[in-house]
Simulated scan of single mutants.
Amino acid sequence: MVKIFLDPGHGGSDPGAVGNGLQEKTLNLTIALRIRDMLLAEYQNVEVRMSRTGDTAVSLTQRTNLANSWGADYFMSIHINAGGGTGFESFIHTSASSGSVNAQRIIHPAIIQQIGGVNRGQKAANFAVLRTSTMPAILTENLFIDHANDAALLRDSSFLTRIARGHVNGLVQALNLQTGGGGGGTIYRVQAGAFSSRANAEALQARLRADGYEALITESGGLFRVQVGAFSVRANAVALVNELQSKGYEATIVTA
């Protein structure tokens, strides 16, 4: 089993970078959740944990402590840049292991292939999450929130999916993941509602996001389904269902 730890940067009272009506913390979480769902749905013998799955504050120390104590095989921190530039760049630690170096060489171009734009390069920095994680690690900076053209792309849900797909493609190549979907086992999707009207699904999605949950709308069987998470371990799905139900949502687990 390959253990991948995803770290959506910032959260809670820390919005991260802001610009053009966008907040970094929200974009980071959206991208990370899509990476998680793609990995669990499409690849076998992979387990994913995250530093946060909602709009919550998590310290830098807590993020790497969670990954280290779990024994993650790879740590990936997702961010959006700011400062007047444009394009994509990635970072490993200045004293990175060969595992980090080799993975960056694979993951970085896989993301560029999906999103295009300016390639700002494969870099190294003494960032805390890279310094304190005990496994190979990378931090990605996905466009600039304060650049008008970049922000226009970051507002596009399909572009965020392309960012996520680039990360997934890189992880698959770097970690030699095999297709098959959740190790041949069941994927437990947490669904908060299903509607014949997309407008009703979007209203529920907005309510969930206001409560700090990243919800995706999918269409199948003539219905617009609002999905809040996908898990290879049923207990994790049950925990999220219980949490949502305690807040008044009619959440359920679906496996098809």
Rank of each mutant, 00 (worst) to 15 (best):
M1A: 12
M1G: 10
V2K: 08
V2T: 09
V2H: 07
V2Q: 15
K3Q: 05
K3H: 11
K3E: 07
I4G: 01
L6W: 00
L6H: 00
P8T: 02
P8V: 00
H10E: 05
G11Y: 07
S13K: 13
S13I: 14
P15M: 04
P15W: 04
G16H: 01
G16K: 03
A17D: 02
A17K: 01
V18L: 10
V18D: 14
G19H: 03
G19Y: 09
G21L: 00
L22Y: 03
Q23D: 09
E24S: 06
K25Y: 05
T26Q: 07
L27T: 05
L27S: 06
L29A: 06
L29V: 09
T30D: 15
T30M: 12
T30I: 13
I31G: 04
I31F: 04
A32Y: 03
L33C: 14
L33I: 10
R34W: 03
R34S: 12
I35P: 01
D37A: 10
M38P: 14
L39C: 12
L39N: 14
L39K: 08
L40H: 15
L40S: 12
A41V: 14
E42V: 12
Q44D: 11
E47M: 10
E47S: 08
E47C: 10
E47G: 12
V48I: 07
V48A: 02
R49W: 11
M50P: 07
S51P: 01
S51L: 00
R52D: 04
R52K: 13
R52N: 08
T53E: 09
D55Q: 00
T56R: 14
A57M: 10
V58Q: 07
V58S: 05
S59V: 03
L60T: 09
T61G: 10
R63A: 04
T64A: 08
L66N: 09
L66W: 14
L66F: 05
A67S: 03
N68D: 04
S69V: 11
W70T: 00
G71V: 15
A72W: 06
A72I: 02
D73M: 10
D73C: 06
D73I: 12
Y74K: 05
Y74P: 07
Y74G: 07
M76A: 12
S77T: 04
I78H: 11
I78Y: 09
H79C: 08
I80H: 02
A82T: 05
G83Y: 12
G83W: 14
G84Y: 12
G85Q: 02
G85K: 03
G85P: 04
T86L: 03
F88N: 08
E89I: 15
E89C: 13
E89A: 06
S90H: 05
S90Q: 08
S90R: 07
F91M: 11
F91I: 06
F91P: 09
F91H: 09
I92Y: 15
I92F: 07
I92C: 09
S95W: 13
S95H: 13
S95Q: 10
A96L: 02
S97R: 09
S98N: 13
S98E: 11
G99M: 05
S100H: 11
V101H: 11
R105W: 15
I106R: 12
I106W: 08
I107C: 11
P109E: 00
I111Y: 03
I111A: 02
I111C: 05
I112R: 01
I112L: 02
I112Q: 03
I112S: 03
Q113W: 14
Q114R: 11
